Simulated scan of single mutants.
Amino acid sequence: MASITVRNLDESVKNSLRVRAARHGWSMEQEIRQILQQTVAPEQTEQISFAERVNRRFANLTVESLPIPPRQITRTPPEFDQP
């Protein structure tokens, strides 16, 4: 887990955080954690399946845009009967 330090915070902001945390019944640190998660995390909370992510990733591809490699001659299998 990471930690940060916030300097030069107005005393009124600190008091408001303390009161807000008390209303929720947890520490100021937890209150700040909740505020940050609610503010930043919504961008990350969209839960999509792996199949949907793959579908989105390749949605704009067409069959014509995929290169088809030229066929190659298969190698000759080894012969184990010879010494």
Score class of each variant (00 low, 15 high):
47 Q>K: 07
6 V>C: 04
23 R>E: 15
14 K>D: 10
2 A>W: 01
13 V>C: 01
80 F>I: 08
15 N>V: 14
6 V>W: 11
4 I>V: 13
16 S>T: 09
76 T>H: 05
71 R>S: 15
72 Q>E: 15
68 I>E: 14
53 R>F: 15
41 A>V: 06
16 S>C: 04
51 A>N: 09
57 R>W: 11
43 E>P: 01
53 R>N: 04
67 P>R: 02
39 T>M: 02
13 V>H: 06
7 R>K: 10
51 A>M: 07
10 D>H: 00
73 I>F: 07
15 N>S: 14
35 I>F: 03
22 A>L: 04
71 R>W: 13
72 Q>D: 11
83 P>F: 13
8 N>I: 03
28 M>R: 02
40 V>S: 00
82 Q>D: 08
39 T>Y: 04
11 E>L: 03
63 V>N: 01
46 E>L: 06
30 Q>P: 00
57 R>L: 14
7 R>S: 10
53 R>V: 10
42 P>R: 01
32 I>P: 00
39 T>N: 01
3 S>N: 09
56 R>F: 11
75 R>P: 11
22 A>K: 09
24 H>F: 06
57 R>H: 15
79 E>D: 15
58 F>D: 04
62 T>A: 01
2 A>F: 05
54 V>P: 02
9 L>P: 00
74 T>V: 09
61 L>G: 00
71 R>G: 14
56 R>H: 14
51 A>I: 11
70 P>E: 15
9 L>G: 02
24 H>G: 12
65 S>Q: 11
14 K>V: 05
9 L>T: 12
82 Q>F: 09
